[in-house]
Write a protein that binds this DNA or RNA. Structure first.
Lengths: 346, 346
DNA sequence: ATGAAAGCGCTAACAA
DNA sequence: TTGTTAGCGCTTTCAT
């Protein structure tokens, strides 16, 4: 004997049990104040008794927005974005939202596609680390349909959109100045794609620190793989003006360098000092411990979420939209690789 | 002058444009074969012309399942799970699904709550790394309502559920045997919570390798923090039967050990050898390079997703349910910390 | 403060 | 093969 499929309770059943009309129940679950306290209590009792939960699908169909937010990042397996994702999801939960994620794989077409798919699901807000270089009208169109959008890590080019970024430029500047303070004159700067906002900013910081001390910048961009890094290092070691220090524009490059320097038997920081950008779990464990400019993914995600929820409620009450840009500080963490502490403790 | 809100097109408009009935359009978008090819073409043309996209909310309301899958892991910022999440999301996308994520924070109540919330959104499938020790009837109840569930990394205790796990036991066994092969007799085993499936399995592997060689297991569990690890190490170094090698049950413990061993000036592997479980980006960069048992999060996620989509289609055609358990191999990656290659190259 | 009716976009069931 | 009807659960509008 097959029992009935046991459909979840509807407001109709709640209404019947509470002996009120449908609308009263609807008002209760929407926190509409136009309900007499005594009625409210009856309805709440019925809701509890039945274990009623609102049916999002039905509400969506009536044009409401889902209590979901979306997160689009270039790569979820990147530790920085992974921490962001964790934080975002955590905060979303405490606000009663669920989190939809997508990785853009650094492909701007994929990014906008995913954003449109999410928007199609009528979510309330979208957090995005864009891989789009030029301003994207498609994204802005979504915004106009009532989707709250906040960019983080990188601003959205030419968009009236909130953004949370970090002090990439001054962070880089500080790092390079620190190296200069250690007496270095030939400081190379290594990284990949300058068209990425953060990289560009860091490069600017590097240049400005070098210029400020009358030093000649030695920039090597477009270096992505460990092989590329190896080639660069081999050439650099043989070169006439062999650098005595390197500023690595990101986590990955710093890691490659660490590995190769060890492989080539170059003493760090004695023969070549190193400072990176982006802190990571093992930065203190690698040998030598890596001096690096740290940003806080948790804080970035937090601020971005705060902004997003602001926007969501603005949208709801049709408030004005004044895009905010939050710039978070970074910290230069001094460890051994820059020459500071020969034997770094924990 | 405010332009009309520009509602997205509905099947009604598609039907009008294609000069067919509503149901014909519905059939087309549901791949129902009972449509004449010529009609199909007309409808598809209209769909393309209007840029029609199906409204999930309406379909949900009719009792269908959303083309979304859910992923619940203990911690999204953990690199293993982050890679899983990335892979899951990627595969979901290619199947036309979106991915909802949640972290359980290793709290089984939170886990089931999130699962129920997801289920309430009528998603098609759920991938879960459970933090629940005993079998959870609430999860099984969700399963009975037509939600496809696949566990990975850890099986679901006492549940008729598919699971994808790795060869934890034999991997640990091999690692310990390897250490024994290096001549070690006093091999400590360090880790945290044995009630976690993977840890338990690895401990069993450790014990069995030790016993097989007539050695006495020296297990130290419940060690979670770096402070705990430090205390253990201090005690171990002073002890009469000071271990000459350590098998670390997970990434984190291995990392702590590496750091502390460096801090204490203990030469690895000469004074104390080390083998870990779980590979990570920097395992080859740390010094000494860490020998470890590697599992592939990408492969785990892939298999889990394959299983999940199998289940989803089974559910759809009401097929029998035969829970599968997939056990994936692990690989012992020999680097320097076990004593194998004194100077590990890349 | 409360309720009745209409309908959001879609599909299951039936009819043609 | 195709179209018509009804209604999923909810909220909006308009009564009361």
């Amino acid at each position: 004997m097959k029992q009935a499929p046991e459909r979840p309770p509807t407001i109709r059943e709640v209404a019947k049990l509470a002996r009120v009309g449908l609308m009263t129940v609807s008002r209760v679950i929407n926190n509409n104040p136009r309900v007499r306290p005594s009625t409210l209590k009856k309805v709440n009792a019925a809701i509890a008794a039945l274990g009623y939960q609102k049916n999002e699908a039905a509400r969506l169909l009536k044009g409401q927005r889902a209590s979901m937010i979306g997160l689009i990042v270039p790569d979820l397996s990147d530790s920085f974005f992974a921490v962001c994702a964790h934080t975002v999801q955590q905060i979303a939960r405490t606000h009663g939202y669920m989190t939809l994620v997508a990785a853009s794989e650094r492909d701007s077409e994929l990014e906008i596609q995913q954003a449109e798919l999410m928007a199609g699901r009528k979510l309330a807000g979208l957090l995005v680390v864009t891989s789009t270089k030029e301003g994207d009208e498609r994204l802005q169109r979504l915004q106009k349909t009532g989707l709250a959008i906040v960019a983080f890590d990188r601003p959205l080019a030419g968009a009236q959109t909130d953004a949370v970024v970090v002090e990439n430029r001054s962070g880089a500047e500080e790092a390079v100045r620190h190296l200069i303070g250690h007496g270095h004159k030939r400081i190379a700067c290594l990284g990949y794609d300058e068209s990425v906002y953060a990289v560009h900013e860091r490069v600017e910081g590097y240049k400005s620190a070098m210029h400020a001390s009358g030093l000649k910048p030695a920039l090597s961009l477009g270096i992505n793989s460990i092989e590329g890094t190896r080639k660069w290092l081999q050439a650099a070691l043989k070169s006439a003006d062999r650098p005595t220090a390197v500023f690595a524009l990101n986590h990955r490059t710093a890691t490659y360098l660490l590995r190769l320097l060890a492989e080539f038997g170059i003493a760090v920081p004695r023969e070549m000092a190193l400072v990176g950008f982006d802190d990571f779990d093992l930065a203190a464990v690698v040998s030598p411990a890596l001096t690096t400019v740290a940003q806080s993914p948790v804080e970035v995600a937090r601020r971005a979420m705060a902004l997003l929820f602001d926007r969501i409620s603005d949208h709801r009450r049709g408030a004005e939209f004044v895009p905010a840009k939050i710039v978070l500080p970074v910290t230069l963490i001094l460890r051994a690789s820059c020459g500071c502490t020969p034997h770094a403790p924990a």
